[in-house]
Simulated assay, not measured.
Amino acid sequence: MQIYRIPFKAMASTCEVVIADDDEQAMFAKAQEAIAEVRRIEVKYSRYRPDSIVSRINAQAGGDAIACDEETVALFDYAQALYQASDGLFDITAGILRQAWDFKNQRLPAEDEVQALCQRIGWHKVERADNKLRLPLAGMEIDFGGFGKEYAADRAASVLQVAGVTHGYVNLGGDIRVLGPKPDGQAWIMGIQDPRQPDKIIASIPLTTGALATSGDYEKYMEVAGQRYCHILNPQTGMPVRQWRSISVLAPVAALAGSCTTIGMLKEANALAYLQQTGLRFLAIDQQGRVHTQATA
């Protein structure tokens, strides 16, 4: 079997489908099916597309409820479970904080600007009945950015599994779902980046199945007056998290791995207790560069 790597761009990330196969033409067809599934999810749920279900719901904030299909309802159920499991820290209505935090132009927001947005945040305010969802306040928004990429990785992996792929993985911007080991049975080696040295790998993780995801303060951030402000924002305060440089989690599926890393970042001082409670393997790097791990699940 030959190992093939098919790179592509999606969800503002550099992505890759890796498949071991003995038929290049069949392999390429399988990879294109998986990539098409990623693009389907991006089109359906991107807040940047006016025709997406997310944009249609947001456009009706303060107005009518919107009917949702079965897949979207399931994602809302998952968002609700994350909200409850995180004591309200993982909140898909918190995306509006980006209106105050401009990481591209390195602009710190005024406190009243942040607090005004916080008034429109709160998953508990969202009204759901049957398959319909309504945002009760004008200006409220939902955003699947907290787990959309990981969900897409899992869906792409499912497409490949149905197509008979048993050796390979899907990598969507560092959110990785592994289908099975290399053809010789060896693990794929996944590197975890040093959050302060982009060219350095701080750990190498062997994976034959399951998923790996990382959240951190090093890919999207700004530094003002010597203080680093990261893009992961606490919905209750409107402020960036500060406790951890990065948190990586291994889980059976990418959606679970990714949501646990984000909740860990949001938990700040309580992150290790939370991560240990999940029973999942993790690697966390604090602001002093110390590494904390739970190596066995």
Rank of each mutant, 00 (worst) to 15 (best):
F8T: 12
A12D: 15
A12K: 10
C15T: 01
V18R: 00
I19S: 13
I19H: 09
D21N: 01
D22H: 08
D23I: 00
Q25Y: 03
A26L: 09
A26Y: 00
F28I: 08
A29W: 02
K30I: 03
A31Y: 00
A34I: 01
I35K: 12
A36S: 14
E37P: 07
E37A: 14
R40W: 06
A59Q: 14
A61T: 10
I66D: 13
D77R: 12
Q80K: 11
L82N: 10
D87F: 04
G88K: 07
F90Y: 10
D91G: 12
R98D: 15
W101A: 10
D102W: 04
F103L: 09
L108C: 11
L108Y: 07
P109D: 02
A110E: 15
V114F: 06
Q115S: 12
A116I: 00
A116V: 01
L117R: 04
C118G: 04
C118E: 00
Q119V: 06
R120V: 04
I121Q: 13
W123C: 10
W123D: 12
D130L: 09
N131Y: 03
L135A: 10
L135N: 13
I142H: 08
D143M: 01
F144K: 05
F144D: 15
F144H: 09
G148P: 02
A152L: 04
A156P: 07
A157F: 00
A163W: 03
G168Y: 02
Y169H: 12
I176N: 01
V178Y: 07
P181R: 01
W188C: 10
P198V: 02
K200G: 02
K200H: 12
K200Q: 15
P206N: 02
L212W: 01
S215G: 07
Y218K: 06
K220V: 11
M222K: 07
E223C: 10
H231P: 08
P235A: 08
G238D: 04
V241I: 10
R245M: 11
L250C: 11
A255H: 08
A257S: 13
C260R: 12
T261R: 05
G264F: 00
M265Y: 08
L266Q: 12
A269Q: 13
N270Q: 14
A271L: 06
A273S: 14
L275S: 12
Q276H: 13
T278G: 06
G279H: 01
L280I: 06
R281W: 01
R281Q: 14
L283F: 01
I285T: 01
Q288D: 15
G289H: 07
